[in-house]
Amino acid sequence: MSIQHFRVALIPFFAAFCLPVFAHPETLVKVKDAEDQLGARVGYIELDLNSGKILESFRPEERFPMMSTFKVLLCGAVLSRVDAGQEQLGRRIHYSQNDLVEYSPVTEKHLTDGMTVRELCSAAITMSDNTAANLLLTTIGGPKELTAFLHNMGDHVTRLDRWEPELNEAIPNDERDTTMPAAMATTLRKLLTGELLTLASRQQLIDWMEADKVAGPLLRSALPAGWFIADKSGAGERGSRGIIAALGPDGKPSRIVVIYTTGSQATMDERNRQIAEIGASLIKHW
Rank of each mutant, 00 (worst) to 15 (best):
K144I: 15
R91K: 11
L196D: 13
T186S: 11
K30S: 09
R162C: 14
T262R: 08
R81D: 05
L79I: 05
L196F: 11
S264V: 09
E26Q: 15
I275P: 02
A235L: 11
R189K: 14
F64R: 00
V82D: 05
H151C: 07
K32D: 06
V157I: 12
D207Y: 10
H151T: 09
R238P: 08
L146M: 06
G114W: 04
K232Q: 01
A182I: 07
Y103L: 05
A124Y: 02
M115H: 03
K71H: 00
A148L: 13
G142Y: 03
W208F: 08
L137A: 12
S281P: 04
T178S: 11
L197Q: 05
L191H: 04
C121L: 07
A77E: 08
Q97I: 08
H24I: 08
G226R: 08
K252L: 15
T107Y: 02
P60I: 15
P25A: 08
P143F: 05
K252C: 10
L38S: 07
D269Y: 13
C75S: 13
K53D: 12
Y260A: 03
E119M: 12
M153S: 08
V106R: 15
A276F: 11
S57W: 10
H285S: 11
N50T: 10
L136A: 12
L167E: 02
N173A: 11
R41Y: 13
S104T: 11
A222S: 08
E164N: 02
R241S: 14
R159C: 13
E119H: 12
R162L: 04
W227G: 01
W286T: 02
R91E: 14
M209N: 00
M209L: 08
N50R: 11
L188G: 04
P105N: 05
L282W: 02
L49G: 05
W208K: 02
P224N: 15
A84E: 10
C121G: 05
S201P: 03
L218M: 15
C75E: 03
S68P: 00
G141L: 11
W286L: 04
A222E: 10
V29W: 07
D33H: 07
M66N: 01
S281G: 10
T107M: 06
Q37H: 11
S254T: 08
N168P: 02
K30R: 10
H151K: 07
R63G: 04
D212P: 06
A84M: 11
D36I: 10
E164R: 01
A246N: 13
R81Q: 06
R241G: 05
Y95G: 03
L192A: 07
R202F: 04
C121M: 08
L192Q: 04
A235R: 04
R63W: 05
V258Y: 02
T193K: 14
V42W: 13
H151S: 08
A182Y: 09
T179K: 01
P253T: 11
D83Q: 09
L28E: 13
F58P: 01
S233Q: 00
Q88C: 10
D174R: 02
G248S: 04
L223K: 06
A230P: 00
R271E: 10
I206W: 07
I243R: 00
F58D: 02
A222W: 07
K213C: 05
R59I: 02
D129P: 00
I140E: 04
H110L: 09
P65A: 12
S264R: 08
E46A: 14
R92C: 13
E87W: 08
G251A: 10
M209E: 01
Y260H: 00
A182S: 12
L205K: 00
A266Q: 09
D269N: 12
S233F: 01
Q204A: 06
Q86E: 07
G279F: 05
I93S: 03
M115W: 02
S240N: 05
R118W: 13
S201F: 04
I244N: 00
